[in-house]
């Protein structure tokens, strides 16, 4: 296996060295669970154009964790509690204007979400300042750390993650249907509102779980970027979903590995790797489109036909 050494770098040896640390092992386990979750759920988030709601759910965990710490409770409790409550609040907003881009502004709903988000963050700041001497933990809450993942946390993540994936599997087809064409789905008897709420709850659990590893501010990178990259590469739902998961996992592993050997934080590496993949995919898509424009137009697979396949 020494053939893997490139330019004097012994990759296999490095990886073995890295895995010999228990905290790195835990970080990789937790990172993998989080990445699989974020990749899968992020795909639907991008499809449903709920990036803003997803981002808000991601940051809403911060006041939860800060508040729980201030009250002497477990931070996990705060993360899950606040994220789930936030998901219900967003789901309760009037559905008018969602997923539509009609004439005139459609910013009212996002203004509400934005207000909720700013208020939640302000509360988080209040809790942090009420809990004196907690300031050093602030950076960890916001930006995460890979060194602090315990065995118990990995187990909890595994349970939450498995639950989320099962829920997503159960929701799968109606969720896809109502994401793409909610009016037709409603006419066909899909409980669109209920499916939407259930999805937001799954998103909240995933965001809360991921927040504990990557920090509140960086969860969003794992949610949106792999999914956006995948949707640039394929228009077919199942391959897109798998690709999104794959990219999320690859980016997380690479990011954790590089962060271990470099002085710079994991958040930087994961977001940068993810963004690079997005840029590459965008470039690729532009190239394909340009080629396609020169040739006689080939009929692109009809979306609905593919969904059924």
């Amino acid at each position: 296996m020494s053939g893997f050494s490139i330019g004097g770098l012994d990759l296999v040896g490095d990886v073995e060295h890295l895995l010999s640390y228990h905290f790195m092992l835990n970080a990789l386990r937790a990172g993998t669970i989080v990445a699989v979750l974020a990749g899968a759920i992020g795909y639907f988030m991008v499809l449903r154009r709920q990036s803003f709601a997803g981002h808000t759910l991601a940051v809403i965990g911060f006041p939860g964790a800060a508040g729980a710490t201030w009250l002497g409770l477990s931070a996990s409790l705060g993360y899950y509690g606040f994220c789930l409550a936030g998901a219900l609040a967003i789901a309760a907003l009037p559905a008018a204007g969602r997923l539509t881009a009609g004439l005139g502004g459609y910013g009212d709903e996002s203004a509400v979400i934005g207000t909720v988000q700013a208020f939640a963050l302000a509360c988080g700041f209040l809790f942090v300042s009420l809990y004196k001497g907690f300031l050093s933990g602030l950076t960890g809450l916001l930006f995460g750390s890979i060194t602090g993942v315990s065995d118990g946390q990995v187990l909890a993540l595994l349970v939450a993650g498995a639950g989320c994936l099962l829920a997503l599997l159960a929701l799968g087809r109606p969720l896809l249907f109502s994401s793409i064409d909610s009016d037709v789905a409603r006419a066909r008897g899909v409980p669109v509102r209920l499916v939407g709420t259930a999805f937001l709850l799954v998103l909240a659990v995933a965001a809360a779980g991921a927040s504990q590893i990557t920090g509140s501010l960086l969860v969003f990178a794992l949610l949106v970027t792999p999914a956006a990259t995948a949707s640039r590469l394929t228009a077919r739902p199942l391959p897109g979903l798998l690709l999104s998961v794959l990219i999320a996992v690859a980016v997380t592993w690479l990011g954790e590995g590089i962060a271990f050997y470099s002085p710079y934080p994991i958040g930087f590496w994961v977001t940068t790797l993810a963004f690079s993949s997005f840029l590459l995919a965008t470039g690729y898509r532009h190239g394909i489109d340009r080629l396609g424009r020169r040739r006689p137009a080939t009929p692109r697979g009809e979306r609905r036909g593919e969904v059924a396949a």
Binding site: A101, G102, G104, G105, Y106, G107, D108
Partner: peptide
């Protein structure tokens, strides 16, 4: 055009 969005407050 399509209709104005119901949330348009103008």
């Amino acid at each position: 055009r399509r209709a104005f969005d119901p949330a348009t407050r103008i």
